[in-house]
Every structure is written in C-alpha cells, then in structure tokens.
Write a protein that binds this DNA or RNA. Structure first.
Lengths: 259, 259
DNA sequence: TAGTGGTCTAGACCACGGC
DNA sequence: CCGTGGTCTAGACCACTAT
C-alpha cells in the first residue's frame, strides 16, 4: 500500500503534526504545494495525505483543504457493565444518564439479521418489531450511540404496550417485568467491526474507525423456560468508548483456595 | 475514495464473489485481464481489487494473484468473562484451555505505555517487566492472540519468582496470592482499534480488520489499599472473537423491586 | 525467465466550495 | 470563478513469484 516516496512524505507529514508544526484544526498545504516541497507528483503527495487520514491524523472533506484532526482523546468514556435503576427505570450506563434521543426514534416491522433472530428465539426471516434511536448528550445533540431494539411480534401481541410509541413509565423493561411478574436477566456480547456507511454518517467517523457493537439480550425465565426476550444492539465509535467490568470467580476459582 | 469506474468494477467483482462465480480460495483474474474485460486502465482495475480487499472479500499478497478470502465466519468464538481454575492454575477463557505459546515467550525490561503505567500505579516513563506471548491452539500453531503482561519492578524485586523464566505451578497469579495470602481481583476494560503493523503480521489480518483489546488488571488489596498489581493486555482479531458476560444488578436495581 | 502486483510520473478532466 | 481534491488514462520501472 505504501511505496518509498509515499511513505517518505507521509512520515514527514506525520512528524510535522506530532511535533505541533500543524495543530488540530489547521489546514494542511495543498497537494500542489506538498508535491513541490517534497519533489514528487501531486498524486503521490495526495496518497500520503490519504494514508494519514486512514490513520486518523487528518480529516478529509472533498474539495476542502485537509484539516488536522482533533487527536483521538486518550480519555475514554467507560461503560460500566452493571444495570442501575433510577426514577425513570433501568439504565445501563452512568455516563448516559442525561442522554436523550437526538432525532425522533423510528418504529417499524422488519426482518432482523439472522443472529438477532437466533437470540430472540424466532425463526430466521420472520418479521419482528424494530425500534431505532440515535442517542447523545441532551445539550450538545451529538450522536454518540445508535441503539436498535428488537421484539418478537408474538410478545407485542400479548403485551401491546411494547409496540406503542411510548411504552409508559420505566419503558418496555418495566412492562415485561410487570406482565410476567419475574425479573429480567441481561447478557451482553461485545465485538467490533468496520462501520457501515450509515454508521459513518451518523456517528461522524471515517471508514477506518471501528465501531464497538454491544448486543444485549434481555430474558425472562420461568421454571428454566424462556418466556420473553428482547434484543438491544448498540453501536458506538471505538475511539470514544470502552467497556469495563469485574471478572467473576467461578466455583472452580473460589477463594479461599483448597490445598 | 471511489469514482465511477472504480465503483463499477468493484461492484461487479463483489457480486461475482457473492454469487459464487469465484469461490473462497480462487484466484481473481489479473489486473490486465480485468482492465480488458471492463474497459478501464489497469490501475483503475487494481484500485477496485484493493477496495474489495479493504472490505474483507479478497486477500492481497504482493506479486501474487488476489485470492477470494474465506468469508468472515459468522460463528464467533466467544470469550466468557469469568475466571476458572484447573490443575494448571487460573484461566480466563474456556476456549483457550488447550492453547499454548506458539513462539518462545519474550521477557524484558521496558517503559510501558502511559495507560499501563497508570493502571500499575507506577510513574509514567518508569521501567517495568514486560512479558510477551503469542498464543494459539496447540495443534494448529496459528497465532490467535497476542498477550503482553506488565509487572512493576518493585514487585519483582520483592518476589523474584515473578521475573523468572518459569514462574512455577499456577504461574504468577499463584505466586502473588501465596505471597500476600490474599485473593486477586480482576477487572477488564475492552475496546477496539486499528491494528498496528506488528499485529497485522502476527495475527495475519489486513489493516482494515480491527483488533479487540482486552486490558485485564489484577490487583491484591489489603485493608482497602493496593499492595500488588499486574496488567495483562491481550489483542485479538475482532473477526474471530467476541466477549460475553452477564450484566450485574446493582443495589439500585435489586429484585424484587420495591413499589 | 516471464508475468504479476505495486508504484510513480505526466497530464487531463470534473464537480464543487470558498473567495 | 478560480483552486482544490478526486479520478482516470497512459506509460514506465521494479521486485519478486511461480513456472
């Protein structure tokens, strides 16, 4: 991906940025100027700039001068994998307490991805209720997380409040626990991948920044049988979020240890 | 990133791969052939191929015909965030029970990254003991995870077994618990980023596949004071691994709920 | 040793943003 | 409306791989 000349120019530019010769927000010289300065073809110079953009140093907007990017904040917002409750209901992230839906949530009926159908316990290809929300701090209105919730249609038929525009106090989780008179149990799976084009646009990240995907399954069990389930899949920039949790000791690793 | 012609050729190739015209392992036509077939310049055709490589469809090795890549497995190996214990000592991943160091582990003294120093409770810029291991299944010898362990020099001085080539039965965790006669507590932070060149080479992934980074801090506390700490940072392909864990109920979210 | 991908130069055209 | 980044063609050279 990188030949001698491209590499040379990219290294020079990267160092110039790291030493503060160009500060965040500054414009970089035009491709023509860079080509002249380093004695290469304009195409080669632009390739170097594009390489820096892929590394996250530079923001590239077509037909605008490349700008030095605000360096990825070393201070990550950490999600703590515990469920809390306040007067509004359950919540999973103390950082997100004052967040709100930045745009109007959407609600519709659609076929979910296979892995979601499997988690919900419905046949693949079958319609489910899908809600989508773009979440962010109530003040800045910046979109930081994309949350999608999936509910089996059978469950919505049994408990119509789940499909309403507003599910009422405490949201769908309170409706589920009220209806079944049993506690929800949540399990999360976390992984990461390249962002889709939609995610790039909504979260304002380049295609090289991975998204962190947290899939949370809410289950209500009765006599060891699953009687209700919901899946929430939240996507966020891996540059801004990390997950934190305590590692649990299994029975085999109990303390004090037996000799 | 993608002009009309590049996009057109890339779309055609992507569809050819998805419809099975080219199967995993097959070679793609040469740049010259593609250029002829689609009536574009060779450079343009190669750009399309490179775009498909970035999306994970094609594996690109310099000076070899591009090969259709084994599609990212939908079946993820899931790490369960619980600590277990067997006759060999603690372990954190039931999938990794039969794994071994694929290459000889390295051991050295070096300055750790700032975030590691902070977690260890050591001043930034100070030397620590660094161990590196490349882990994978004992049979295939494929490297699946890169594990780096950091220990403060003061702790090694106090407990020399920690710095030995072999820390003895149960490894450093057993040495720590024996020495301090107290249980370790582990906390993990998980996030994701683009792979470094070293990680690309060791894990055999392209620069577009994110790596999942799990930073595990082992702490021994006595009377609420930290008396010993170790940090283990494990990096793995986000295409192959996911993390799974139960969400804990905090006191505020206890069940049964009070009205 | 022939052929391949990778890279670089040269020169051209386009669409669009900021002056 | 000029200048910019983005794209494409054309043609050249190189290093390495497969044969």
């Amino acid at each position: 991906m990188t030949g001698d000349e491209t590499r040379r120019v990219a290294d020079a530019l990267r160092q110039a940025i790291e030493t503060g010769e160009y500060s965040p927000g500054d414009k970089l010289p035009t491709g023509e100027k860079l080509a002249e300065k380093y004695g290469v073809h304009r195409g080669t110079a632009m390739k170097s700039v594009r390489a820096l953009a892929a590394e996250g140093y530079v923001e590239l907007v077509p037909r605008q001068a490349p700008r030095v990017r605000e360096r990825p904040r070393s201070r990550l917002v950490v999600r703590d994998r515990t469920v809390y409750r306040d007067e509004l209901g359950y919540f999973f992230d103390q950082n997100a307490k004052n967040w709100a839906a930045v745009e109007a949530p959407t609600r519709g009926i659609a076929v979910p991805p296979d892995h979601i159908a499997d988690l919900l316990g419905v046949p693949r290809g079958q319609d489910v209720l899908v809600r989508e929300r773009k979440m962010g701090p109530a003040d800045t209105k910046q979109v930081l997380q994309l949350a999608t919730s999936y509910l089996p249609m059978a469950l919505v038929a049994e408990l119509p409040a789940l499909g309403a525009e507003k599910a009422g106090p405490g949201g769908i989780y309170d409706r589920l626990e009220e209806h079944f008179q049993a506690p929800l149990e949540w399990e999360e799976t976390a992984w990461s991948r390249q962002p889709t084009e939609e995610e790039q646009a909504a979260l304002k990240i380049s295609k090289t920044i991975p998204v962190l995907v947290v899939t949370r399954v809410a289950q209500i069990m009765r006599d060891d049988a699953l009687i209700g389930a919901e899946v929430n899949e939240t996507r966020m920039s891996s540059e801004r979020f990390a997950l934190a949790y305590r590692v649990q000791r299994s029975d085999s690793a109990a303390w004090p240890r037996q000799a």
